[in-house]
């Protein structure tokens, strides 16, 4: 897999959708990189969190992922 291209695709897709929605399930990322196995995409996404491009949001039972600092949650949670 071209990891750089995959990361770029993820960032572009998330930015495009950021007006209406800032957080996504892991499965939504699989659709962005349809030719790769879920496991491979998962590793790219988790690495992007390490690199501070993305961040997790946890409901406790499920985890959502979005662009770092985007969305209304940070403000609502008093963490911005």
């Amino acid at each position: 897999m071209d990891i750089e291209a995959a990361r770029e695709t993820i960032l572009t897709t998330l930015k495009k959708k950021s007006k209406s929605k800032s957080k996504f399930y892991l499965k939504d990322f699989y659709k962005m990189i349809p030719d790769e196995k879920p496991r491979a995409v998962k590793n790219v996404v988790n690495k992007m969190v390490q690199d501070e491009l993305l961040e997790y949001w946890s409901s406790g039972s499920t985890t959502l992922i979005g662009l770092k600092g985007m969305g209304k949650q940070a403000h609502a949670e008093d963490e911005d």
Binding site: N46, V49, Q50, W57, G60, Q73, E79
Partner: peptide, 18 residues
């Protein structure tokens, strides 16, 4: 509930409460 707080690079282990 709070969902953002956590330790860096981990998706679990912390539950935000306010």
């Amino acid at each position: 509930h709070g969902g953002i707080v956590g330790v860096f690079g981990y998706g679990g282990g912390v539950i935000g409460r306010y």
